[in-house]
């Protein structure tokens, strides 16, 4: 009971922060739209993309939803670094609640933000000419939720090893961007050279994007069941590792 309240309290704070930083919400919707409209239209005009009904723009649409979830989740996870710099993390860590409860609360707060953004993008699917039934919409939201828990957990894990926001650029260049590029968000993952294929398949985001594409466009590289299983396992591992790190590294986090 106390644990549940702890989780709820941490979640509530994350969610309040999300809604109070208005600029973040705006950019989180504008950036993916730029990708869809400019990149999607531009490259779509240059390449022949017969495999998908709505052309290239429709093809990358699930990928861009995945990108939004990736960026929001990782960066929200990294907000722990800011909490540490501004000292607020101490207030949370010194409280008599369990470390896993703190991690769960954070992860759910991150998912809330990510799912809200994904939902806005899903509502805008008409822009790329994709129509969605309520069932497709709900399924995509559920997949987004699972993805964001895992990626948020990854953000927390990275944050536990990062002392300052100086590491931010490194994380961006060496983790976030490669994950995005290697996820199949922008190109089909079948028929790639084998070194690239391998990199794509160790990337957890690949399975999330593939699941979204399977649900939204009915087109995928792997069966939906496998994709969903993969992202669930990834989420469980990340939450477990983050909880472990927050317990073990408690002293150095304060």
């Amino acid at each position: 009971m106390a644990e549940l309240e702890g989780i709820y309290t941490i979640w509530l704070r994350e969610t309040k922060r999300f809604f109070r930083y208005k600029s973040r919400i705006v950019t989180s919707v504008v950036t993916p739209l730029l990708w869809l409209i400019i990149f999607g239209t531009g490259l779509g005009a240059a390449v022949r993309f017969g495999a998908t009904a709505g052309g290239y723009k429709a093809f990358i649409y699930p990928g861009i939803v995945g990108q939004t979830i990736l960026f929001t989740s990782i960066f929200s996870g990294l907000s722990v670094i800011m909490d540490r710099q501004y000292g607020f993390l101490k207030e949370i860590l010194v409280a008599p609640i369990s470390r896993p409860a703190i991690v769960m609360g954070k992860a759910l707060g991150i998912s809330t933000a990510a799912v809200i953004q994904a939902t806005i993008l899903l509502l805008l699917s008409f822009i790329v000419g994709v129509s969605m039934s309520p069932l497709v919409f709900i399924s995509a939201m559920i997949v987004s939720l699972i993805m964001s828990v895992g990626l948020g957990g990854l953000g927390l894990v990275i944050a536990a090893f990062t002392d300052s926001m100086e590491g931010f650029n490194l994380i961006m260049s060496f983790i976030v961007l490669p994950m995005f590029l290697l996820s199949g968000a922008l190109f089909p993952i079948t028929g790639l050279p084998s070194w690239l294929q391998a990199a794509v398949y160790v990337n957890p985001l690949t399975y999330g994007v593939d699941a979204l594409r399977s649900i939204i466009l009915n087109q995928s590289a792997l069966p939906l069941g496998i994709d969903v299983l993969a992202i669930i396992i990834f989420a469980l591992i990340m939450i477990f590792v983050a909880a472990l790190l927050f317990s073990k590294k408690e002293q150095s986090l304060m």
Binding site: G6, T9, K16, R17, R20, Y86, K90, V94, P96
Partner: peptide
């Protein structure tokens, strides 16, 4: 931890929460 209250040497506040919200949050964490 349940027996003590702490005020750290460096600030431990969240800029974008109100004073009342800090107190509410603390009450539920404890």
């Amino acid at each position: 931890r349940e027996s003590i209250g702490i005020v750290f040497q460096s600030r431990a506040l969240d800029d974008i929460l109100t004073g009342r919200e800090h107190l509410e949050m603390h009450a539920s964490l404890y």
